[in-house]
Design a protein around this nucleic acid. Structure first.
Lengths: 135, 135
DNA sequence: CAGAATCCTTACGGATACTG
DNA sequence: CAGTATCCGTAAGGATTCTG
């Protein structure tokens, strides 16, 4: 990775493409990361267990997301060379610290989802077609 | 939107596709929402101002993201029918409440980005090609 | 100024088949 | 069991052009 001059002022320029927040959101903002962290928070789990508990995730995305989390040092992958092989996933220390901010976000979501949904429906009820436009 | 039987147990089944957290992340987890909320937190702004301050955002994505936020009731859009027209964007009350959880996430990002980057580099340095495989 | 509309490319992600 | 490899459709998003 190239160190840009901007990095020294990153905290003051959170709107650059390479700011920390943006990089974290790239990891956390996808469909599956939060769910995986959520399950692992409750306890270590093996591949098939995660697959079962996270409804709708494909094998490909589970693998891919776990690899990403492992690469970021948020999840530890342990292979037990039995037959058949057993692989256990666990949150690392860093991974566990991610839980709190995510929980805050979830809390916000639960608290405001009703209002958001209502606002959406109200918004969708209004016709925004400019006057005089047909079809 | 269709009401599914699952909705009654949503809070107990956070791993369903339509759970609150996931819906919020679909909004907040994209590249731009956080940045827009960040700018608007500092004060109301008009379209061109947002465009200028959020580096790298295209006109299309700015419009699209603002529309989404407006639809969710998180941002208020005010049109001043002058010539040329002036449009001001502001956070709503709900929008302002989003700031805190997002700030937590940003804080986490700043605090852990170093470790994450280091972990990534370490991960990328080890060869994961199975023994005996060429190419 | 603040967008709407269009085109076009990329990459995300699902389905499937195969392996140690 | 826990993946890898491949194919493929969709959609996200950039660049460009046009408008009230």
């Amino acid at each position: 990775m190239v160190t840009t001059p901007a990095e020294s002022t990153l905290l003051g320029s959170p709107y650059r493409a390479d700011c920390p927040t943006r990089r974290i959101l790239d990891r956390v903002g996808d469909r599956w990361t939060v769910l995986i962290v959520g399950v692992l928070w409750e306890g270590d789990a093996r591949f098939s267990e995660l697959r079962r508990r996270i409804e709708g995730i494909s094998q490909k995305m589970l693998t891919q997301t776990l690899r990403g989390l492992e690469r970021d040092g948020l999840v530890r992958r342990t292979v037990y060379p039995e037959v058949p092989v057993r692989v256990e996933y666990a949150l690392t220390g860093a991974g566990r610290t991610l839980r709190e901010p995510l929980r805050m976000l979830q809390e916000w979501a639960v608290e405001h989802l009703g209002d958001v949904s209502a606002s959406q429906e109200a918004y969708d009820r209004v016709d925004r077609t400019p006057a005089g436009v047909t079809g």
